[in-house]
Design a protein around this nucleic acid. Structure first.
Lengths: 151, 151
DNA sequence: TCATGGCTATCAAGCGTTTGACAGCTGACC
DNA sequence: GGTCAGCTGTCAAACGCTTGATAGCCATGA
């Protein structure tokens, strides 16, 4: 009674790839949030820290594009992390009122801890999938992202 | 300069499976939102409609657990869809102040349209991956979700 | 030289969600 | 029969993000 074969609506909707994708991402994100909480860090904070770490000197607007959020959202996160002394805003050499983002020593230390947590989660997943399966999954996911983006 | 091989923090962080998962899910979700907008429907609305369709008589609290959100969020969505006449709240036979959720005819019609859109997106992805690759991806994603959930 | 376009950051308002707390009802255990 | 745990739904407040609009600065071209 939970399935109506005469009605094409939702036929196999729960078996769709996009549905499985949503469930997996949600579960992983929830796990990250749980494990990061003891450090006093939200997943979005970690994302910002590692983004700034991998591309120092990023501006707020550019970072917003990387993370697919609005500049205001980034500004809000930066303000919080700055008040904790984990991120600092420096003046851009050319554009005066543009601010480059950099990690402080405290920020790097925090990132080190947080990244260990995330790496642990990654290890759990890759451990279950095997190195070959993991690499394959990564490639397929990138393919999915490309298809969705240019569709 | 964007990569510091001496510092283990974030080594290959951008190549992680969980990162690729996030990117893919974000791209797909964004695409859904774009394609659903012309119908005047948000992705969360569609999710609620198809959930109620596949399991009629669901209560708000139970639906909240299915979707990994709070009961208030569900109540908010239901209130909106109810005001549009797409969902109705019936009294539970046993528990009087518990409400079962059901789709109206208008709701089913809307779902039919929306589901065609989603099915189209699914087809684009499975088309790029092939039937075998799609099924395989689905299985691996479910495996990832399981690992993350019971970790 | 000056004007225009494009980028930056920021303010204000609105929406949706979560968190915390509450009251009502049912079912099971004592 | 009475009590307590567990569920339901709802209210109030706080948080985070988006949308819309504004101001400042640099670069290109007339």
């Amino acid at each position: 009674m939970t399935r109506n074969d005469e009605d094409p609506v939702g036929a196999g909707a729960l078996d769709r790839v996009t549905w499985a994708l949503r469930r997996a991402e949600l579960a992983v994100q929830t796990l990250k949030e749980q494990r990061l909480r003891p450090l006093g860090l939200a997943a979005s904070h970690y994302t910002l820290l590692i983004s700034v770490h991998s591309e120092p000197g990023l501006t707020g607007a550019e970072l917003a594009r990387r993370l697919n959020v609005t500049p205001q959202a980034v500004a809000s996160l930066v303000a919080r992390l700055e008040s904790r002394g984990q991120v600092e805003r420096r003046e851009h050499p050319r554009h005066r009122h543009v601010q480059e983002l950099h990690l402080t020593d405290a920020g790097r230390a925090m990132l080190r801890e947080a990244d260990a947590v995330i790496a642990g989660i990654e290890l759990q997943i890759t451990g279950a999938l095997g190195p070959k399966g993991s690499a394959q999954l990564r490639d397929v996911l990138d393919q999915v992202a490309d298809v969705a983006r240019e569709a």
